[in-house]
Design a protein around this nucleic acid. Structure first.
Lengths: 153, 153
DNA sequence: ATAAAAATATTTGATTATCAAAATAAAGGA
DNA sequence: TCCTTTATTTTGATAATCAAATATTTTTAT
C-alpha cells in the first residue's frame, strides 16, 4: 500500500516535470527556435478553429486581453498568425494562423499522437480501460477539490 | 482504438492543466497568500533534506544560481528560509527551511497524499499494477524521446 | 609556497510574461 | 443624439529569469 503510494506519487511528479521541461526546451533546439512556450500555447489556442476573436482566445488561455494583445503582436511579427477586424462588428478582432502557424500546430499534434501511441501500444483492452478510469478518478479529484478554481463557466 | 486515443489525450491534457491552475491559484486564496508558485517550488526543493547548498537547490530547480539567490533572498525576507555559510568550506552557503517554511512543505505533502489516495482507493491490486506500468511507459517514452533534455546532471 | 585555476555564490543589467487600470473605438439603446 | 456597454489596445508596474561580471575561498601545479 505504502509502496504503491510513493511509486505512484513519484511517477506522477516525474511525468509532470518531464512535460514541463520538454515543452520548455523542445523548441530551442529545433527548427522553431524563435518561439517560446507561451507562444506555442497561444498558437494551439488559436488553431483549434479557423478564426477566433481575441476575447475567446484570451479566455481559453486564461490571460488578460492586454497580455494576449502583446502575444499576438509577436506572433504576427514573426509570421505565425494574422489579425483582421470583423466587418459585422468593427470592435472585434479576429486572429487566425498562417500556413507557418498551422505547421507548428500540426507538429504539436503529432507530439501528442506519439505520446499516446507509446502508452496505448502494448496495453490490452482491459488494461486500457483501467488506465482511463484511473485518470478519470484523478481528474474527478481535482474537480471536486478545486471546483472554484477549475470551473470554466 | 481511435476513441481511446482522444479520450486518453484529453484526460492527460485536462489533468495537466488542472494541476497548473491549482498550483497557480491554491495559494492566493489560502493562508499562504504571500507565496508565489515558484517560491513554493523552491521551498519544496530546499525541504527535501535538512540543509542544502545553494548550488544543489539551483540544480534541482534547474535555474541559475543568480536566480536562486534572488528567490532565497525573498524567502528569507518573508521568514520561510534561512541561510548560513559552511564552516568547512567558506565558499558554500547552506539554505534550510524555518518552522514556517516546513509548514508549507508539509501542506504540499498532504496535498500529494490526498491526491494519490483518491486514485488508489477503489483500485484492486491488479488495477493498481496496470496503472503503474502504464505510467512507467509514459515516462519511458519521454526519457527515450527527450533524453538530452531530461538528462539530469 | 605562491601563483594560477577552479569552485561557489552574489550582483548587475537586460528580457519576457504578466496584470490592472486607463484609453480608444464601435454598437446599441433611451 | 447622448449614454452605456462591449471589445480591444496601450500604459505603467511587477515577477521570474538569464548571462556576464564580480567577489571570495579552495585546490592545483610548479
Amino acid at each position: 500500500m505504502d509502496k504503491s503510494y510513493s511509486v505512484l506519487n513519484q511517477l506522477l511528479v516525474d511525468i509532470f516535470n518531464d512535460i514541463l521541461l520538454i515543452e520548455q526546451n523542445a523548441l530551442k533546439s529545433g527548427e522553431l527556435s524563435d518561439l517560446s512556450i507561451t507562444e506555442v500555447h497561444a498558437i494551439e489556442a488559436i488553431g483549434k478553429a479557423t478564426e477566433r476573436t481575441m476575447g475567446e482566445v484570451a479566455q481559453d488561455l486564461k490571460v488578460t486581453m492586454g497580455t494576449l494583445t502583446i502575444m499576438v503582436d509577436k506572433l504576427v511579427r514573426k509570421g505565425y498568425a494574422e489579425r483582421f477586424r470583423s466587418e459585422e462588428d468593427r470592435r472585434v478582432v479576429f486572429v487566425r494562423l498562417t500556413k507557418k502557424g498551422e505547421l507548428v500546430y500540426k507538429l504539436h499534434e503529432r507530439f501528442h499522437h506519439e505520446m499516446i501511441r507509446s502508452i496505448i501500444d502494448g496495453l490490452s483492452e482491459e488494461e486500457e480501460k483501467i488506465l482511463i478510469s484511473s485518470l478519470e478518478k484523478l481528474k474527478e479529484f481535482f474537480r471536486k477539490k478545486y471546483d472554484l478554481i477549475l470551473r470554466k463557466e
